[in-house]
C-alpha cells in the first residue's frame, strides 16, 4: 500500500511531536482512558461503571475524559500510533466513521462473559452496544391534555406554532427524518417524503434547535409543547420538575445503539476489553436502568423495570418488536446531502 499524503503528514507530525516531548514515547505505562460523553453520561459512568470496573479488576486506574464523538475521532486520528484514548463511546453515525477510518480494534468476543447475552441488534464485534437511546414523542402535559399516540399527531392543526425539532446535525434529528420518511413510504436511502413532511409541518414549527440539549430547554421556557425527544434526557428533565412527558409512538420508538469501542493501537487493550465487558454486564446495566439514569439496557439478563418498563417495553422480546432500528450505514451515505438540503430549505 502506498502511503497517502495524510498518513505521511501524520507520521511527520508525530515524529516531530516525539522530539518535542520525549516523555510521550514512554506513554505505554499510562492508565486506562475512557472517553465517555459529557453531561448525564459522564455522571452515570463515574458513579456506576467506573466503580464496578475497578472492583472487578484489582482497583485498576482509569480516567474518564468526557468529550463529543467528533473530538474522540479527531484525537485518535491525530495520534493513531499512540492514541491518547483507549475506549471510545459513539452514536451510530460516528461509530461507523471510526470503524471505516480504521480507528477501532475488534472486541475479543470469545473472552467476554456477557457479549452472548446481548440482544442481537447490540452485538457487533467492532463495538458492542451497552445501551440504547430511544426517541419518542415529548409533550407538555400541562398544555396538552390528550397524550399523543402517533408521530402524525405532531401535524395536527391544534399544534400550530408549538412544535420543536432539531436540525440534522444530531443523531436525533437525522433519525427522526428517516422515520417520518419511512412512514410515508421512504427509507434510509430515500428521505424525499420526510422533507415533504417537514415542509408540511412548517406552520406548526416554533423552533428548530441546534441540538437535542437546546430542544429540551425549550419545553422549560414554554417555547414549544410537543416534538421528538430522547427518552433518557426527557426523564431527567421531568425528574427536575419540568412539565414534560415521554410517549413511545404506536409506529414504534426509534432506537439508536450507543456503542463502545477499543481504540486501535491502545496500550491498554486488555483493560479496555475488561471495561467494555463491565459495561455489558447485567449488574451495571441494571443500576443504570434505574432512576436517576434511566438508560435502556441491552443485556437480556437484565429484568426490565421502572420507567423503562412502564413507557418503553416490559422485556427484551417486546423491545425487539416495539423499537425501530435504522441502518446507519445507509444513512451515512447521504447524510451530507440531507444536511445541505435542510440548510437550504428549512426556514421558518
Amino acid at each position: 500500500m502506498t502511503p497517502t499524503r495524510r498518513q505521511l503528514m501524520t507520521t511527520a507530525l508525530t515524529l516531530g511531536a516525539l522530539h518535542l516531548f520525549p516523555g510521550m514515547s514512554a506513554a505505554q505505562a499510562r492508565r486506562l482512558v475512557f472517553a465517555t460523553f459529557t453531561g448525564s453520561w459522564e455522571e452515570a459512568h463515574a458513579a456506576v461503571l467506573v466503580p464496578a470496573f475497578r472492583k472487578a479488576n484489582n482497583n485498576a486506574e482509569i480516567t474518564l475524559d468526557p468529550m463529543l464523538s467528533v473530538d474522540q475521532i479527531a484525537k485518535v486520528k491525530a495520534a493513531l500510533q499512540n492514541p491518547p484514548i483507549d475506549v471510545m463511546l459513539h452514536d451510530p453515525g460516528p461509530a461507523l466513521q471510526a470503524i471505516e477510518q480504521g480507528l477501532v480494534e475488534p472486541f475479543p468476543v470469545a473472552q467476554s462473559a456477557h457479549y452472548k447475552d446481548l440482544i442481537k441488534d447490540a452485538q457487533d464485534d467492532m463495538g458492542p452496544a451497552p445501551f440504547f437511546q430511544v426517541v419518542g414523542i415529548t409533550y407538555n402535559p400541562d398544555k396538552i391534555k390528550t397524550p399523543p399516540t402517533s408521530w402524525t399527531d405532531i401535524w395536527k392543526p391544534e399544534f400550530k406554532g408549538r412544535v420543536g425539532i432539531t436540525n440534522l446535525n444530531s443523531t436525533l434529528g437525522t433519525g427522526w427524518l428517516v422515520e417520518i420518511a419511512r412512514m410515508r413510504g421512504g427509507s434510509e436511502a430515500n428521505v424525499e417524503a420526510g422533507f415533504k413532511a417537514i415542509e408540511e409541518l412548517k406552520p406548526n414549527l416554533a423552533a428548530v434547535a441546534a441540538n437535542p440539549g437546546q430542544l429540551a430547554t425549550l419545553y422549560q421556557q414554554g417555547q414549544i409543547d410537543i416534538g421528538p425527544g430522547n427518552f433518557n434526557a426527557i426523564q431527567i428533565l421531568k425528574a427536575r420538575g419540568v412539565p414534560v412527558e415521554f410517549v413511545a409512538p404506536k409506529e414504534g420508538a426509534i432506537a439508536f445503539k450507543t456503542t463502545i469501542h477499543i481504540v486501535k493501537n491502545s496500550p491498554n487493550k486488555e483493560l479496555a476489553a475488561k471495561l467494555i465487558d463491565a459495561s455489558l454486564s447485567p449488574e451495571v446495566q441494571k443500576v443504570l436502568m434505574d432512576a436517576p439514569y434511566l438508560i435502556v439496557p441491552t443485556n437480556t439478563k437484565v429484568a426490565i423495570g421502572g420507567e423503562v418498563a412502564k413507557l418503553l417495553a416490559k422485556n427484551h422480546e417486546e423491545m425487539k418488536k416495539k423499537f425501530v432500528f435504522q441502518d446507519w450505514r445507509k444513512i451515512n451515505e447521504q447524510r451530507a446531502q440531507w444536511i445541505d438540503r435542510f440548510n437550504r430549505e428549512i426556514k421558518i
Binding site: 434529528g173 423552533a207 441546534a210 437546546q214 428549512i346
Partner: peptide, 10 residues
C-alpha cells in the same frame, strides 16, 4: 448565535 438563533438560522 446557535442558542438564540437556533438550528435553522445558519
Amino acid at each position: 448565535q446557535t442558542l438564540i438563533g437556533g438550528g435553522q438560522l445558519l
